[in-house]
């Protein structure tokens, strides 16, 4: 199939990584905790790729990406719990449902707000993130199951290495293919110059909405995987700082660079979680003093992302 065109190397590499991980997991060398973090890296990469589509490729500044990640998580968890779909085989369907819900809400909210630009769009999406957070905090008024500010508990643990791996790799290839199609080209045109884009016949409103919805769809699927990995959701998991987390990964990886997002996601999660393991418990408090310092130094050292050697002037 041409779907996999030019991805043979990628697939082989992915398969290799999978085998190594599987062996490590089943050999019992790595702890449950490390296994969970490894799966979490895939999830974060998937969500960050969604933001990369929105911001890195299309140039739409979003500070509310975690809201869509949360919508996907709550949707899938709610479906599984109320419909009693406690089976790995039902998971693809609820993942899709989580993604579609996030994409749909992105589409509805995108129609009014995507005509804003730059920081104004950023602040509007940030505001939307707060609104979603308020909604999660009050969700127990709609249904007890959702748990409101106490958190959503008792979610079936369905996410495993296999499903995360297959879903992430599949969606990354889908994303790559869209990016190299006319749609990705139009998105990059819009990022470069919206007026010129309209002058050559690009329906900028529709294309922006499409990029935004698709990016949020990816976040939704990632959120759904997250829900069934950690089996507990709390509104604070999806707040402004989480959105910034995704943004950091996109910037570190380099705007409009999917491979970069993968590396940066791995490094960022690896570093944050690695510190938790490496630091002795009496100075564990210092973790969040080091992390922002590192972030500041990285931004000064490589303002265009870790992969780019470009400096200054922009």
């Amino acid at each position: 199939m041409r779907f996999f065109l030019d991805s043979r190397k990628l697939i082989l590499l992915a398969a290799g990584i999978y085998i190594v991980l599987k062996l490590l997991f089943s050999s019992g060398i790595v702890s449950e905790y490390i296994q969970q973090i490894t799966i979490y890296v895939f999830i974060v990469v998937l969500a960050a790729t969604g933001l990369n589509v929105i911001y890195g490729y299309t140039g739409q500044f979003s500070l509310g990406h975690a809201a869509f990640y949360g919508i996907g998580a709550y949707t899938s968890a709610y479906l599984v719990k109320t419909l009693g779909l406690n089976s790995v085989f039902a998971l693809p369907a609820t993942l899709l449902a989580g993604g579609i819900m996030a994409g749909l809400i992105a589409c509805i909210i995108g129609i009014p707000i995507l005509r804003l630009r730059d920081d104004f769009l950023g602040i509007a999406t940030l505001g939307f993130g707060i609104l979603v957070r308020v909604f999660f905090d009050n969700s127990d008024r709609i249904s007890e199951t959702l748990g409101g500010s106490r958190g959503f508990t008792g979610i079936a643990k369905l996410t495993n290495l296999e499903i995360t791996f297959v879903v992430t790799v599949f969606l990354l290839i889908v994303t790559r293919n869209i990016i190299s199609s006319r749609y990705g080209l139009f998105w990059r045109c819009i990022k470069d110059d919206e007026t010129a884009s309209a002058s050559i016949g690009i329906d900028t409103t529709r294309m922006k909405l499409m990029a935004f919805s698709y990016g949020c769809f990816l976040a939704g699927v990632a959120g759904a995987l997250y829900a069934h990995l950690y089996t507990f959701l709390h509104p604070s998991n999806f707040d402004f700082l989480k959105s910034i987390d995704f943004l950091i990964i996109v910037i570190l990886g380099g705007m409009g660079n999917i491979a970069g997002t993968i590396y940066a996601g791995l490094l960022w999660v690896g570093f944050i979680e690695g510190l938790r393991i490496a630091l002795p418990s009496n100075i564990l408090d210092l973790r969040w003093v080091f992390i922002p310092l590192l972030l500041i130094v990285l931004m000064m050292w490589r303002p265009y992302g870790l992969m780019s050697k470009k400096k200054g002037d922009g």
Partner: peptide, 12 residues
Amino acid sequence: TGHSYSPFAGIF
């Protein structure tokens, strides 16, 4: 812009 194919055609 004048020669269209669907997103699915692009993906697959």
